[in-house]
Nucleic acid binder design. Structure first.
Lengths: 219, 219
DNA sequence: TGGTAAATTGAGTGATTACTTACTCACCAG
DNA sequence: CTGGTGAGTAAGTAATCACTCAATTTACCA
């Protein structure tokens, strides 16, 4: 006989309790790091006793590992990107990727958790990074390589180019979320600016060629 | 009570000892963060007793602050950049900046220290970041703005563009130094690739450029 | 040679850490 | 009612933390 999830508020099922501990701990670890967070705080935030934390997770480190493992889940936005990639709509591909990383990957604690775990040298950090992040620029590198072969893109190292694009976007988030730098434009403007810069470069078109576009002509 | 500047140290002069403590502590703080480093470790690394650490620095936090304050010193490479900027040698300006941030700013502990202090929310983190880092892209933004007014650069938000360039470079270092991603090309190649990408963009130059590119609205 | 001041330390301090033990209580089948 | 089970906790544990202090060593000078 399986245990049914309790509807009444009398007591909490093991699964729910585990989830509430993970939720509370993730918030604290993201804010203050592994070493900066105490198990007492976690218990207090989750509204339970410290001993109960250790009932569900044998060590503090195991709890940390459980959080990282849970956060690894990769999203499904790739479908949209796929469609744009099929149509060779370069601007749309990069806009989607950038926009996702700037707002949609909106969980602000995720970036902090990722950086903390990498800095603190947690053994799950590698896996966390590989699944959650590397996917983006390896996919991008594949797309760029294809477009290079089609002659649409300049012959540049595709991995380097992908890294550069993701770098612009991630650094934007780091400035904002870690270093608390005030944004001087909306996220949409930022994304548009990065994509334009990445595709067309900073240098103005040659003088003997008539200027093709002017800023602000978007309806 | 009165502290006189000592010219005659008994064993090791106060100044030297202070410096050696800072050196040892900086290494440890960069490796494991503020909360992850114990004062006993610091003393052991510096080859002295723990009590002596507290003779020179009233608290562990004060020691940390002293390290950050010391690392703020900005370098002098700006002269080279100035010269290139005078000649409007765009490629050289960005190459110098990038190259500096990739090899020359070679102190690997600096990036870790900066990230740790920002994540852990140390009060000196802001100053540390502003003096040591922001300088670069604010200077770059000024250069880009000038070149925009001269018609050499496309009309893009200069601060955004500078941020994008520094982002590519810094992200490169973060990948390498924090996430331990293996480099697949030499630093020189990386710098050259980034600069080319930044100035000319990814899209291949077209025979007869069509002005039809207009990013469709993305949901 | 002995006085002095600074450098240096062994041996602590109370507080806090991650983690454990022994226990209570709610619930349910028989 | 009774006894088993699992949720939950108060009150610990030993270890470690940042930090202190009385005492000792050393360099220098009168």
């Amino acid at each position: 006989m399986k245990q049914v999830i309790t509807g009444n508020g009398a007591r909490t099922s093991a699964r729910e309790r585990q989830a509430s501990i993970i939720f509370a701990a993730a918030e604290l670890f993201a804010a203050k790091g592994f070493n900066g967070t105490t198990t007492r705080e976690i218990a207090k935030t989750a509204g339970i006793s410290e001993a109960l934390v250790f009932k569900y997770f044998p060590t503090k480190r195991a709890l940390y590992a459980a959080i990282l493992a849970e956060k690894v889940q990769i999203s499904q936005l790739m479908d949209n990107v796929e469609a744009a990639a099929e149509k060779r709509d370069d601007a749309r591909v990069f806009t989607l990727v950038a926009r996702f990383r700037i707002h949609r990957g909106a969980d602000p604690s995720l970036l902090r958790l990722l950086l903390f775990s990498a800095l603190e040298g947690h053994e799950l950090s590698d896996m966390f990074f590989r699944k959650r992040h590397r996917v983006f620029y390896e996919y991008l590198a594949g797309y760029i390589r294809r477009r290079c072969q089609e002659g649409a893109f300049r012959c540049l190292d595709p991995l380097l180019a992908a890294q550069a694009f993701v770098g612009m976007i991630v650094y934007h988030r780091i400035l904002h979320e870690i270093f608390k730098v005030a944004l001087h434009c909306t996220p949409e403007e930022a994304v548009a600016g990065y994509v334009e810069l990445f595709l067309d470069g900073l240098r103005a078109p040659q003088r003997n060629r008539r200027p093709a576009r002017k800023a602000g002509s978007v309806s």
